[in-house]
Structure formats: structure tokens, C-alpha cells
């Protein structure tokens, strides 16, 4: 475990309402808040995350199924939103950009917390959809990222979770992202600063997931990414 982590595992489990029979969909969003994100990018990102919370909460099935964790990484990797049912999430305080890009530490937190969450589901007999990990960055990792990235990538390639990587701007290290993420679907570049469009797509996708039966999650028709993804 990387030392640049600020949270104790007991704090990251959050509450699990066992009287809610909806299958859960744990979602971990890893956000780059390094110095290069300062200015308009971080303000756009803040607005988009708040919108994502509101829009997902507005959908009843998604608000009962999705459990959200937000991890930011800059000079430190922090769990700013421990796993919480979307129905109970309040939009996080605005992120402040600064420092380097401790992506490896953030990936370690995500790996630890997802494993703990799945174990909690198993112990409590709560069924779940495949977890989602969303990684958004505009740079390259500034710490030891390879071991944890390799493990996560292997898990994702075995279909254990949905792993989405979004590159922000031209300074994102595409070659490294290709090593971090599974080959398919691979990283995708954000058009400009279209954070809101991306998070709307993410919200709509999670609504589709939570409206489906667990065994049908591979057959979900996801919405178009044309509004935010640079596929050129």
C-alpha cells in the first residue's frame, strides 16, 4: 500500500443498508486534481461532478443501486467521498488543484476499497453489478503506479469490473494510460473540457445498468459518446 494515502479503511466502507434489496453498483471515480488542472479545468470538473450527483439521484433505480466513491489525487491521494448510496450522497466540496499526480496511490486506494466493498456485499448477502472505475487525468503518474495498475488491469480484463479511462487535454500521457487501462475499450480522450457531457453520459449509463437485471449487464445498450469523446 502506498504511504501517500490519507484514509483509514474503516472510514471508507460507509454504510450499507441491508434493508435495501436493490443490487448495488459500486462506482469509484478517480479525479486528477494536480496543479495542471488549475483554472478552468478544475472549475468545470467541480460543476460536472455536482451535476452528476444530482442527475443520478434523480433516477430512482440508480439512486438506490449506485454507491459512489470519489478519490482525488494531486500531492496526496484522498478518499473525498467514501462509498455511499447515491441517494445519500451530497455533492462534495469543490476540489482544489495543486501538486503532482499521485495516480498510483489513488489506484491503490481504489483497489483496496473496492475489494472491501465487495467483501461487505458478500458477507451481507447483497447482490451487485460489476463495479465501475473511472479514471480521469491530464498528466502522467508521479509515483509508483505500475504494480497496482497491472493488478487492476488484469482484473478488468477478466471482466471483474468496468474500467474507463478519460484523458484530459493534450498533455495526458497516452502511452502510460494504455498500460494502465485494459486493451478494450482502452483510454478515450475528452473533447475540450466537456466534463459535463461526460458525466451526463456516465449518469445515463449507470441508469441503464441499474434498470437491468444483473445477468443482463453485458447486453446493455449504452448511450452515444459523441457529445464528449474525441474519437478521431
Amino acid at each position: 500500500m502506498n504511504n501517500n494515502t490519507n484514509n483509514n479503511i474503516n472510514n471508507t466502507l460507509g454504510n450499507l443498508d441491508v434493508m435495501n434489496p436493490a443490487p448495488r453498483c459500486p462506482v469509484t471515480i478517480l479525479l486528477d486534481v494536480s496543479g495542471s488542472m488549475s483554472g478552468q479545468p478544475i472549475s468545470e470538473l467541480n460543476a460536472a461532478v455536482a451535476q452528476f450527483v444530482r442527475e443520478t439521484q434523480a433516477d430512482e433505480a440508480a439512486s438506490m443501486s449506485v454507491e459512489l466513491e470519489i478519490i482525488t489525487f494531486g500531492s496526496t491521494a484522498d478518499v473525498v467521498q467514501p462509498f455511499t448510496s447515491m441517494a445519500s450522497v451530497t455533492p462534495p466540496a469543490p476540489f482544489v488543484a495543486g501538486g503532482m499526480t499521485l495516480m498510483g496511490a489513488a489506484l491503490s486506494l481504489a483497489e483496496r476499497d473496492l475489494a472491501a466493498r465487495r467483501e461487505l456485499y458478500r458477507a451481507q448477502g447483497v447482490s451487485s453489478y460489476r463495479p465501475w472505475i473511472v479514471l480521469m487525468t491530464d498528466g502522467r503518474p508521479g509515483d509508483n503506479w505500475e504494480p497496482v495498475a497491472k493488478r487492476l488491469r488484469a482484473e478488468a480484463e477478466r471482466g471483474k469490473f468496468m474500467y474507463i479511462g478519460v484523458e484530459i487535454g493534450n498533455s495526458a500521457d497516452h502511452a502510460t494510460m494504455c498500460q494502465i487501462l485494459p486493451t478494450e475499450p482502452g483510454p478515450v480522450k475528452l473533447q475540450g473540457l466537456r466534463f459535463k457531457q461526460f458525466f451526463r453520459w456516465l449518469s445515463d449509463s449507470l441508469k441503464s445498468v441499474s434498470a437491468s437485471a444483473v445477468s443482463d449487464q453485458d447486453n446493455i445498450a449504452y448511450p452515444s459518446v459523441a457529445s464528449w469523446a474525441d474519437l478521431a
Binding site: G159, C178, E184
Partner: peptide, 23 residues
Amino acid sequence: MSNKKSSKVGGLNWAKLGTVAAE
């Protein structure tokens, strides 16, 4: 970029999702 390939995980395929015709 490998986004031209089809996804084995959850049916995600960036290129395919980008070309869905709107109603």
C-alpha cells in the same frame, strides 16, 4: 489507441457508441 476494437467487458466500445444514430 485501441478503441476500434470491440470490448469484451460489458459491451463498451467507444467507436461504436460514438456512431449510434440519434432519433
